[in-house]
């Protein structure tokens, strides 16, 4: 399994250009930083570290999108280039191969998210702070942890779709659709009592269970909500594994 994880990391790094993605993220953060400085200068607003970090955390959208690219590249990308054939005729079970693919790319996505948050924090230090830096840091760690369930959910969804469609573009589009439109759907369904049983209502764990948030959470307990998400994740991954195991590779 260790060898498989090394392989997937190597292919993600060289094939999906993680280095380039990191540079792009850094440029985006730099851009936000420059805009923030410009606003500071021209309006005399004094932006704080914690405000800068909060603004910058919109970048998690890019991490999500990039995680779709990583997962689908590893699964359907190898199917379309044909390299999957040589991979699947080696004496390793298909379960392990699929597991190594989504797990490695999930961990890479999470680490990239941590990298972005760390960089945001570093740039934020140029601004004055009101709250102690340690609590801003803690806030970032918390953000990373709260985002994990939704990251895993979307990685599982992308895995399932990549296995079924074997097509990179289709998978990315189908995964992005719920990412952008699920909130709207949940909002429209909100008046019915089954709305809290829509899995997408549970994805944004952070805002759902934030004491200051306006809307009532879908479930009374955050852990029940996370459990509900995990059931869906497990189901999607189980289906993906079963299909992958049986699929004909032509």
């Amino acid at each position: 399994m260790k060898g498989l994880v090394i392989n997937e990391t190597l292919k993600a790094w060289h094939g999906r250009r993680i280095g380039l993605a990191m540079i792009m993220m850094s440029i985006l953060i730099l851009f936000i930083f420059i805009v923030a400085i410009a606003i500071d200068q021209s309006f005399g607003l004094l932006l704080t570290t914690e405000e800068f970090v909060t603004i910058g955390s919109v970048l998690h959208i890019f991490i999500m999108l990039y995680s779709f690219v990583l997962v689908t590249g590893a699964i359907s990308g190898e199917a379309s280039t044909g390299t999957i054939k040589q991979l699947l005729i080696k004496p390793v079970s298909r379960h392990r191969i699929l597991l190594s693919k989504w797990l490695t790319n999930l961990v890479i996505s999470f680490l990239l998210y941590c990298f972005v948050l760390a960089l945001l924090f570093a740039f934020g230090l140029f601004f004055p702070h009101v709250v102690p830096l340690s609590s801003t840091f803690f806030y970032l760690v918390e953000t990373a942890l709260y985002t994990t369930p939704s990251l895993i959910f979307y990685v599982a969804l992308a895995t399932l779709l990549a296995v079924i469609t074997k097509n990179t573009a289709v998978t990315i589009v189908l995964t992005i659709l719920p990412y952008f439109f699920a909130d709207l759907f949940v909002l429209l369904a909100a008046e019915y009592d089954w709305a809290s049983w829509i899995v997408f209502a549970h994805i944004d764990v952070f805002n759902n269970y934030n004491p200051v948030s306006l809307a009532p959470p879908p479930f009374p307990s955050m852990w029940a909500s996370i459990g509900f998400l995990l059931i869906h994740i497990a189901l999607m991954l189980a289906i993906a594994h079963i299909i992958y195991k049986r699929q004909d590779v032509l």
Partner: peptide, 20 residues
């Protein structure tokens, strides 16, 4: 079909890691 974005040696090492 091999990984065109890897070197020949990296391809060999990749499959070597999959051997029993």
């Amino acid at each position: 079909d091999l990984y065109t974005y890897l070197s020949g040696r990296q391809n060999l090492e990749h499959f070597a890691r999959m051997s029993q």
